[in-house]
């Protein structure tokens, strides 16, 4: 599952990144759930600013991690889709 290249991921109102000092890890806080972020998940969320397209985000991460764009696109698309079905990520088109 991946997203259209031109779609723009948006973190919805009421959802925010938070550093949990007790667990020393980043989490995504939503009204009804909390998602633990691994370092890659955190890196993905940091790229989402509500203006950049999925394609731009994937290319940025592929450059940053020196990894194949196809793999990044697939992994990031699947990750964001997982957040969308949990209603903690929106996509503008």
């Amino acid at each position: 599952m991946t997203l259209p290249a031109a779609s723009i991921p948006v973190i919805p109102r009421g959802v925010r990144l938070h550093h949990d000092k007790v667990r020393n890890q980043w989490v995504l806080l939503a009204p009804e759930r909390t998602i633990s972020l691994d370092p890659i998940g955190h890196a993905i969320l940091l790229e989402i600013d509500g203006t950049r397209t999925f394609e731009t985000i994937a290319r940025t991460l592929a450059d940053k991690y020196d990894a194949p764009l196809d793999q990044i696109t697939s992994d990031v698309g699947e990750y964001l889709h997982g957040l969308m079905i949990r209603r903690i990520m929106d996509v503008a088109t």
Partner: peptide
């Protein structure tokens, strides 16, 4: 840090 497929893990 190398790329590793991210996993969504919910905190109960």
């Amino acid at each position: 840090m190398a790329w590793k497929k991210p996993i969504i893990r919910e905190i109960e």
